[in-house]
Write a protein that binds this DNA or RNA. Structure first.
Lengths: 348, 348
DNA sequence: AGTGCAATTGGAAGCGCTTCCATGGAGGCG
DNA sequence: CGCCTCCATGGAAGCGCTTCCAATTGCACT
């Protein structure tokens, strides 16, 4: 049996003040005597009173609801670490800040994906929107949301997305560069690169970093073969043969994320190659899979959970007016090359 | 600039009816003429009106909010397929049914975890609670939630949880049995088993099935060595040596989930074993990792996403009074042994 | 003593929706 | 033809909270 829950009026009655005063205390408002504040808190305590968030939203005109949109097709990759970790980070920050987040998966193939996302905002009354790649570079979407009065934060915007809205991410270009530098240092001169999906601009920046590192050594298009995957393990296994059989005979395969690198690794095993003796392989993200495959994968670490957390923090800062600067701010977090056991000097 | 959103009164005015009538149309209420219904829907359309869920909750006394509680420590395993997939399934069902779900991670180590979960319900006004293992067997928690008037559905309850509340799951005992039968058929007679965490009763049922299959062949405690892990990849690698160096010399290692099996596989590689020639390994769940490791893992498939989805459906059925039977119902879904490449006949 | 202002409190009016109850007309039946 | 019931609709009263504005008090300053 649910016994009726105490309301703000119960608290007001018990503490002998008016309802507004309780409201003020609850919301940390100014101009309340300490003695009164304590009395109210006491009443809240004894009644085990909790504000009704629905009523608060209705009256206050603020839903305290955020939406986090992902693009992956959940049918294929329910386990993508990248997205789970972003979500987890966001969830935590929300808990701490008293917000709620609606997680939505809108595959980019969906014909009306932009409408779907905007509808989500209106239907659920979301005040803020967090966009993960590739939506983080969908300028039209960002502007449409902004036009509705919904604040926006992008995660790993690749270029166009920046400046339109606040964002978080790592320096993907530098990550690709650093990883490639390491391979060059080991002596590799012929490379394969598995890029991510078209339109994922931040992932493409990893490729740009890769090319920059090559160029610094006087290497160019003729010294590498670049293919495009879709970030899944399966696309790694699918693309591996083409890379391995290429006349260039690459000695190192650089992948735009860990899942594809794991796929390449698996394909390499399948054709009897010894890793890393016969082939060096690198990933990006430092997802758990990097430690699970054999041998453990050399990769570029990025703090994905923190990315999700910071995204929420930036959004809430905008919503609460803590951050009122006109300029979009971009919060760039640290990345780091993590050397494990899929990289070594090429044998001659 | 956010232009003021249309309210139910705007719709009422435009369609020339009273507010209540619009409400009735929106909620599929009876006793509305088709002509009026059409007129209202037309107005809804032209105004692009969406109900305000906060107001609806406040007035209707129903929040349409569910809570999905997980126990894993997110610090370690942000990627656990099992939980991500449950969540995804739940999210989808909610979208379809017009509910919202709050996903919460409450590590079991948390001293006051029961209070935390119950607080979540009261604070957020959740009407329904979905409990994943091991909370699905926490009878005290289930009863406390029920006592608050919150409906409960358990995912993979192991025993005590059943009957207290509705539940979904597969027949874990049969899954363990089937997998073991397959190994026995291949000729294995000496086994290792890596069980899951204490208190995860549904995972323990896999062990019981394993034992039953052994017993059927006249094998017993002397023919197997059983260790307990914590479902993580790392615990698989940690426990593997003890199993492999055991005087019994097991030829097959059965694991209570895929991550631990992947860990065992990795440890086996590390000591130079050929899989499956030198050792057969099996998992449970059929998570993506089962297809990612090399060689791909033989395991027991369970439809995790569907589990999450069914859980929400059961919960909503209770909440909306579709299901009013006193008896708790348990929805048992199909499992299946998936033979990949980590199992073969033992060599002599 | 008079004026002004800040601090503290409360009254009242909704936020947008649903629920309860009343109303009026259409049909059923003896 | 009167009485009862059923259907379709509307009026009014809140759900529990916040926001706006008014009221009261105390106190510094002239």
């Amino acid at each position: 049996m649910t016994t009726k829950r105490p309301t703000i009026d119960d608290v007001a009655r018990l503490s002998g003040v008016a309802r507004v005063t309780v409201s003020r205390v609850l919301n940390g408002g100014p101009n309340v005597r300490d003695e009164v504040r304590a009395r109210v808190m006491q009443a809240v305590e004894t009644l085990a009173y909790k504000v009704n968030p629905q009523a608060r939203s209705l009256a206050g005109g603020a839903s305290r609801l955020l939406a986090f949109v992902f693009a992956s097709d959940p049918e294929n990759e329910p386990n993508s670490y990248y997205e789970s970790a972003l979500e987890l980070g966001a969830l935590r920050a929300c808990l701490a800040l008293g917000y709620q987040v609606l997680v939505q998966n809108v595959p980019q193939q969906t014909p009306d994906h932009q409408k779907r996302i905007l509808d989500l905002i209106t239907t659920q009354r979301c005040e803020g929107l967090i966009l993960s790649p590739p939506y983080s570079d969908d300028v039209a979407l960002i502007e449409a949301a902004l036009a509705q009065g919904c604040k926006v934060v992008t995660v790993s915007p690749g270029g166009p997305g920046r400046g339109k809205a606040d964002g978080v991410g790592v320096d993907d270009e530098a990550g690709g560069y650093d990883m490639t530098r390491e391979l060059l240092r080991l002596g590799h001169r012929r490379f394969g690169f598995i890029a991510g999906l078209e339109g994922h601009l931040s992932a493409d920046r990893r490729l740009q970093g890769f090319r920059r590192a090559l160029a610094e050594q006087g290497l160019g298009e003729g010294d590498c073969v670049v293919l495009r995957g879709d970030f899944t393990f399966r696309s790694g296994t699918r693309l591996a043969p083409e890379l391995l059989d290429h006349p260039l005979k690459p000695t190192a395969l650089v992948c735009a994320n860990d899942d594809m690198a794991a796929g390449v690794l698996s394909a390499a095993h399948a054709r009897g190659l010894s890793i890393p003796q016969d082939l060096s392989i690198t990933g990006f993200d430092d997802a758990p899979v990097a430690g699970i495959v054999w041998p453990p994968l050399t990769t570029v670490h990025q703090p994905v959970k923190v990315l999700g957390q910071r995204a929420v923090e930036l959004l809430v800062a905008r919503l609460t007016g803590v951050n009122v600067s006109d300029a979009a701010i971009f919060d760039e977090l640290e990345h780091a090359v993590v050397t494990r056991q899929t990289t070594t000097a090429p044998h001659l």
